[in-house]
Amino acid sequence: MSAIIEVRGVTKDYPLGQLTVRALHGVELCVDRGEFTTIAGPSGSGKTTLLNLIGCVDVPTGGSVVFDGAVTSSLSDRELTRLRLEKLGFIFQSFNLVQVLSVFQNVELPLLLQGGIDVAERKRRVESILDRVGLSRFLRHRPNELSGGQRQRVAIARALVTKPRLVLADEPTANLDSVTGNSILELMKELNQQDGTTFIFSTHDHRVMELASRIVRVQDGRVVEDGRGDKSPVAAAAAAY
């Protein structure tokens, strides 16, 4: 299996007044196609920073991030944007739906941004993905008419409608109760297994980690453990907390 993402000796500095804060210290990580990976770690450990670099919304200070064969720090803003549009899907902690658009329109948005897809095809794809996340009956609803779990399902549908290579989710369940959170994770897992879509999500919720096939543990900006699910993820997680 070829790697979709390679993180090589990556450091990331944030300016903070006169000082700089080093959020990542020489991180090494390789994720293959089809993996269902979680990045775990306590608050402030650098999970979001790492996902930003992987998701091409930011570029590293040192080292390199290679996404699908392309070194992100050598790409322009335009090219990075194009890359995100075509090859990435995002699921945000606070859903980030466009409030003034309906469920259908929110999911259709990335297809419209891609362009060149006719109305019928768009309709077919949007309806099919919404059907899979169980929201066929809510096409005309506005985000504020939905529950948190339903909103996150819309977000998942929006992330997947373009058939991306990689879906990133930064704490997708943090704003949901545990039952809903679990069902969201189940859905993601299901989509991973059925379509082979690669997922990387961060969390510090160990029940969520149980579902991952691989857990990458981050602490103080360093990867401290990288374990495959088949090497007893549950036990590893339990050991960490």
Partner: peptide
């Protein structure tokens, strides 16, 4: 959000 999901400037 729009920029993240792929909208150009």
């Amino acid at each position: 959000t729009l920029r993240a999901i792929g909208a150009q400037r």
